[in-house]
Design a protein around this nucleic acid. Sequence first.
RNA 1: GCGACCGUGGCGGAAUUGGCAGACGCGCCAGCCUUAGGAGCUGGUGGGGCAACCCGUGGGGGUUCGAGUCCCUCCGGUCGCACCA
Length: 806
Amino acid sequence: MSDVPTHHPLYDPAALEAKWQARWSERRTNEPELDRPARPFYNLMMFPYPSAEGLHVGNMFAFTGADIYGRFKRLQGYDVFEPMGFDAFGIHSENYALSIGTNPAQLIPKNIANFRRQLKRFGGMFDWRHELSTTDPAYYKWTQWLFLQLFHAGLAYKKRAAVNWCPKDKTVLANEQVINGRCERCDTPVEQRFLDQWFFRITDFAQRLLDNLDKLDWSSSTVALQRNWIGRSEGAELVFETPGGPKITVFTTRPDTVFGATYLVLAPEHPLVTDLIAVEQRAAVKGYQREVQAKDVVARRVGDKTKTGVFLGSYARNPATGESIPIWIADYVLMEYGTGAIMAVPAHDKRDFEFATQFELPIRQVVKTDGEPLPSVSEEGTLMNSGAFDGATCREGGRKIVAWLAQRGTATPRVQYRLHDWCISRQRYWGPPIPIIYCERCGPVAVPEKDLPVELPFIEDFRPDDTGISPLARHKEWYFVKCPDCGDQGRRETDVSDTFLDSAWYHLRYPSTEFADRPFDPARTKTWLPVSTYIGGNEHAVLHLLYSRFVSMVLKDLGHIHFEEPFPKLRAHGLIVKDGSKMSKSRGNVVVPDAYIQQWGADTFRMYLMFLGPFQEGGDFRETGIVGIRRFLDKVWTLAHEALTPGASPGKSESVERKLHQTIRKVGADTESLNYNTAIAAMMEYVNELREQGARSKEQVEPLVIMVAPYAPHFAEELWELLGHKRSVFEEQWPRHDEGLAAAGDVEIAVQVNGKLRSRLTVPRGMPQDDVVARVLADEAVKKFVDGQKVKKVIYVQDRLVNLVV
RNA sequence: GCGACCGUGGCGGAAUUGGCAGACGCGCCAGCCUUAGGAGCUGGUGGGGCAACCCGUGGGGGUUCGAGUCCCUCCGGUCGCACCA
């Protein structure tokens, strides 16, 4: 800081920010009227997992961007509800608690307290009356209620399934939590296990989830990720008969190539395999099946993709050609997708081609390729070797073949999705117990709603083991209960639910946190939902956002809510990286904001993060450059103080006025579209203009203070008070720009000859073409290039450019 | 392999969507003020050239009066999915 004497107090962020945070809290500045808001606006951001390390720069970047938007809406006259909470259940907390030998129930409150402190310090416009934590029994009571809604609706079911098992975390993982065959949390290779698991029937909603994407105002990147994840493909089921044996149904997206199907492949665990093994192949097949089962998921899915397989010794009839073709099993065919069986068309599928080559199976080309080598997978082409269908295009031929086979009962059009049902059970401790009681006589029985919540007991030994049974089973007083239906001895479900169930409905809870007797109040929900704007990271594009949409659809169908899309408008922010790579504890490059906030103040740091690059793209964190924002705020500070000095405000200047209205227009538009970096640049330009023109009247500075308020809220409050206002700056209205004033004055237009810039010309705005051209032709610099040649064509763009073609 | 995105000064990034490339900021250079400068202020800052001018948005080609922006192609990078039939 300068020690040169100044005539006004220096900007001291620390004291000033503490003052305004205290005042917001006393005056309830951030607590909107929830029951009768004039213009409700629900500004939601993705709630954090309260890690022991505290809020990091990535969180703060996301929250600052969302907070600026909320504050901007507030200045536009909305009643903005901006709640904050904690997603505190889950394996992450539990593993950390295990590593330091504490119970997560003791650890989490400390982490939350630390997060709350940091969130208050950075100056978010949070309504702390409505804070929530998913680990609070008053919250998870309703998570369990939600489970029961699905259970009663027949959308929750239990089945023994091959699941992803993480041997380190000792739990089941959802497909979404397996990254390249590894556990997304600890990076351990995932194994296959067969366990009884609870599933939600999200696949019943696949088409609806897909169709609604068109109606949502979402970042296109997020839509693309969801569409890809749902993975719709159209095709047909074809039936292959076996002599004296079972019929084999395959799914294919290319029924047009059925004449080229020269063998069938079943997944090794396909239930029909037993019926199809020829005696002489029994040993080989059993051996192969054992071999595949011993492989973990990594080896099967991501390992080297050399094809393996074994012939069953039996044959099926190709429904199109009538030929007898061999049946194989191979692990490149997955039981979870389609029917677990395929027709192999080696000429037109890369995988089938590799397999056929390796095992010397016949390859028959059925699509013309223009000399392109096989396998040719293109759908652009015409059929050959396909009987009556020769010469038809792939698309048309495919339709005709399906129709033809359908008449004989061997084909059905079929849509297939990659989306799987959502496995929601976890054999762990730190989650909401699934509210089911098993009874010898009645089977699985829902815990009656009056008995909710099923509280998670505090137990000393919550370490998971290899049995695949939750630690809760070791807690006898909790485990054994009476059956709610018949009163016999029963036992509780010991699995807890997936964290993503907690977060699939938290937006419904926020406006209703004070109601103990209902998950979400109907009136509040009607007033505040769906969410006005949701801002969060694309890391949740397929998990959280898909599950939340699914849960909303279910609740809508059951009559609990009035909408089926919870987040009509969603914006994905970018990622803050450090030195080009993602911040992570293992890399040791996590940046914690506390020290920066202490050194520079929250306002400077907030604005600095937003100035780093486009909010929706993120950027590389580096500390050089923070000083630029501080200099800007110092200049605004000085201007505001000078505006108070009598006689030091040298009135209006026309160029300043124009710049002011242009700035209001640009900052408003850029803030609305989350282009915060350019909004800040525009405010800097205005400050530069004020300083150059020696202009600093109240009328010139006050709109600037309001515009800077969403970005630097404490700073703006202080200056607003200084300028003589009693109310919070957030009670004010965003300034209006006057289009006429913004556009007034002269413009400088570019003058080109043959597309090259040769001169510039200042003319009154809106000057007619003929007058402009006359002046252009009189310009010496232009004359030189025209040089007596005939002007063939004149291009004129109003107020921008003239181009003479000679 | 499939899908999405990106490539602009020393650096982060702008460019009203086909119309003056490099706004704004960092850094750097020079000057002023200072005992001093890691403070402040003023000016400069894409490359080449004394200049007139020329060249410049990853490379090459195209469309256009005009291309960072549109099309084709190649190179490089990021993210997501991935033996999904």
